[in-house]
Nucleic acid binder design. Sequence first.
DNA 1: CTTGAAAAGTGACTTTTTTCAATTCTAAAA
DNA 2: TTTTAGAATTGAAAAAAGTCACTTTTCAAG
Lengths: 235, 235
Amino acid sequence: MSIKGLFPIDKWDFKSESIFADLRPDDFELLTAHKSEHVYKKNDILFREGTYPSGIFFINKGKVKKYKVDKDGKEQIIYLANTAQLIGYHAVLSGDRYPDSAAVMEESVITFIPKEDFLKTLDQSPALNNRLLKTLSHEFAVLANSLTMFAQKTVRERLALQLIVIREKHKVDSIEGAPVEINISREDLASLVGTARENVIRILTEFKEKGILETKGRKIIVKDINTLIKIANHK
Amino acid sequence: MSIKGLFPIDKWDFKSESIFADLRPDDFELLTAHKSEHVYKKNDILFREGTYPSGIFFINKGKVKKYKVDKDGKEQIIYLANTAQLIGYHAVLSGDRYPDSAAVMEESVITFIPKEDFLKTLDQSPALNNRLLKTLSHEFAVLANSLTMFAQKTVRERLALQLIVIREKHKVDSIEGAPVEINISREDLASLVGTARENVIRILTEFKEKGILETKGRKIIVKDINTLIKIANHK
DNA sequence: CTTGAAAAGTGACTTTTTTCAATTCTAAAA
DNA sequence: TTTTAGAATTGAAAAAAGTCACTTTTCAAG
């Protein structure tokens, strides 16, 4: 296997950030009783919008996009999830179908936990309940923020903002000290920003000319984060 | 008092839709121990983005908008809440500040419940926990949908969609059989759709010319909901 | 009734974004 | 190394949305 620096389920971070932070050992035992681990290739689909969930997914190592597809097949990315994040639990909790799809953006190792185990653990663990309520409320606030951004910011501002956010996320998986290389297709970037691919390219070119960033093949390296922040906040 | 058709807290709907549906009588007792009821005038503010929450609000009768304000003072409405809905609980759950503000859109009767009572009830009621997790997950899906709409639909399509949604919400408070009168300022409508007031007015004029709707003073009456649906889905 | 302030509406113009039709580049397979 | 399909890029033109300055309407207080 070509993947280095795994985040194995047996060593999940029990510190504050994790959604399973307050889980007692026996609850954790119950939760992971029937876990299974898989290596997914780029573009593999974890789940599809409109289907019923069978469980939740934990990203041991990799990148996953959550997205919706409209009638014309145009894709809108809602969220980028990275190493050590949990996805697909909203639908399990709501008891409804998946509201969006999830696909792997690069080779990734992902642990699957059947929904029965997740729900059973939830039943016996008030700590997990509290943590989930907190997480969901927080996620809601973040999404409300995104909504405002989409409604009020120009494409240029949104792109600047997304570059900042993605760069921050990429930091988790990149080598300390080295410049952070943003590795994302122009198509996905456009889908995240909510515009056409051509538009993204034009603005990236402008940023390049201004020395804000450099490209190395398809990769983007931010050179001047401060100007990027200014652009994102302008207006 | 000029308000008719109240939805008093003592008669909260215990049926499936309510967030307090599964609450046992003694939990309900604890929850409402220190409730207080107020009549708010149009434009009164319930809470402001960035402040810490002191409790939750139940709309006995009326209309409330949740919104965010950007650096230029431009307002973005996130959600319209109506009679029998609960608002302001996200911040209480996340333990953080309010992510948005809430203001009353017309004279409204609202019950306030201190956060201590809400959290205490939450502690002793697994039913309320489950219900909230379900509600939050669902709300998340709805918001994700809004986000996609903002990212992919034109202003015209978004306006058509919002008119349909607002009309549906107004049904709750209007007389059975009578045509539903949508009562919202062009400014608020623009803020909801995420565009300039002038744009909204132009599109409304177009819809009027095509016989899709009529206006009665400031009120909007939808005449041809099917065409509106077609416009909202076009593309 | 008046009437004045706030809200709604109009028109001309600018800027932003989309669309379409090429062309060039890149990375992985042969 | 060569090949080649998919991705990235560019240019030009059209469409959508935003802005500004101004007029008209509405509604409620006097």
